[in-house]
Design a protein around this nucleic acid. Structure first.
Lengths: 235, 235
DNA sequence: ATGTTTATGTCGCGT
DNA sequence: ACGCGACGTAAACAT
């Protein structure tokens, strides 16, 4: 259930701080979890609001309709005093769809840590977020032949700056004697000028999409859930 | 102008990261600054959105209405594919009112600077936002007996972290020889564990409400207006 | 255009 | 309940 109201109203807020908004026309939205939004004709953010979880009540007082939303902790209350209603629409929204946010850079890292073979067969991850002087190396590992692998992950097309960043890290990393050091850029794509510098530096590039990582993480979530179940069953 | 649409739709977002939301009924709001909000039947935050400033366009494609909102920088686009519209309402909201947010932490500081006796009679403010190594001391002053007073202001109930922050500042402040240094926490209330640490450190606590500060600032505004009038009259 | 700080930030997670 | 960190944080402000 969701209620959308277009009305002329006055708004008072009092809680962590306080606010007042004089009479004017706004869009008021009240949702079934008790959250309340008051939107003016511009701005992404509501001018006043109340997060869900609290109590919402309405009462007729003199010639105004007063809607009050109170949150217990932290104690704060929102008062909407309505003088005229131009639209009042209630809808029971039928919406069973799952919302899916694709992998961010951190998720790409998690996916590689969980399943290093999405980069290359035989790769083993030794460490991630390894501290080096200028920052953190995303992933540090060893390939099938024992060579050191240093991976820089980008969720956006990797540009010249990504290559330079990786080059910077390499100054502080020494492979074991007799072992090669393989710097690899992992990203969904290579940006315009990056290929040239990449070749010049002798770095490798491995294409990896956000979708692929999301897939791996879904599998991981499933397997973790199964492990948990197994744990309960054997107790 | 504000457009409120209740419709069954599918949403794709692509930009800094990506998301997908399958078919379902939602409330879509499009405002005159080009911002777009997609709300489900719960949650304070929209499930998908686009901040204002970009381009919003709509087109009929086969048997679906596609609304597309693109932001140039960072480049990201929101695609809403609508299969059925249950409500479409447009309003030119007449709303000239000023929004006023009162007494934030900064206003508390202003109130104390303008009228130090709300903290304690005889207090004089020497400096505010005084730079010390780890940050800024909210207020630095001298009490009636010539002791140095260092005030840390919190608009929320002051917790352990506030006490620690004040303690940190003290390391960098030396009172004149023979004078005491009085660290004071000013806040509307003390949070749970703060009292213990406060006593241990030997700090003081002065209760000050946002309402009180708002009152002081109102008086100040009035007196400033009177000063200004007086100035005009004597010109 | 880019970086830094604030927010009635909100939200989720661990203690 | 509190503390801490992440967020498609967004927005304001300074550089």
């Amino acid at each position: 259930m969701i209620i959308a109201i277009v009305a002329s109203c006055e708004v008072h807020y009092s809680g962590r701080t306080g606010s007042h908004l004089g009479e004017g026309e706004r869009l008021i939205v009240i949702k079934e979890d008790g959250c309340v939004l008051i939107h003016r004709s511009t701005d992404y953010r509501p001018v006043n609001w109340q997060p869900g979880g609290g109590i919402v009540q309405a009462q007729l007082s003199k010639d105004r309709l007063v809607v009050r939303a109170v949150r217990p902790s932290p104690l704060e209350s929102l008062n909407i005093s309505i003088s005229r209603v131009d639209l009042l629409a209630c809808f029971r929204l039928i919406d069973e769809a799952e919302f899916h946010l694709h992998a961010s850079e951190e998720d790409m890292q998690k996916a590689i840590v969980f399943q290093p073979n999405i980069i290359e067969s035989g790769l083993e991850v030794i460490e991630y977020e390894r501290r080096v002087e200028p920052g953190f190396v995303d992933i540090y590992g060893v390939d099938r032949k024992g060579n050191a692998v240093v991976i820089e992950i980008k969720k956006d097309p990797a540009g010249v700056s990504a290559v330079k960043q990786l080059a910077e890290y390499l100054k502080y990393i020494q492979p074991k004697p007799g072992r090669k050091l393989r710097p690899i850029i992992v990203a969904p794509a290579l940006a315009k000028g990056a290929q040239t510098l990449l070749s010049k530096m002798g770095f490798e590039y491995k294409q990896l999409s956000l979708q692929k990582c999301a897939e791996v993480l879904r599998k991981q979530a499933v397997s973790e859930r199964q492990q948990m179940l197994k744990g309960w069953l054997t107790e």
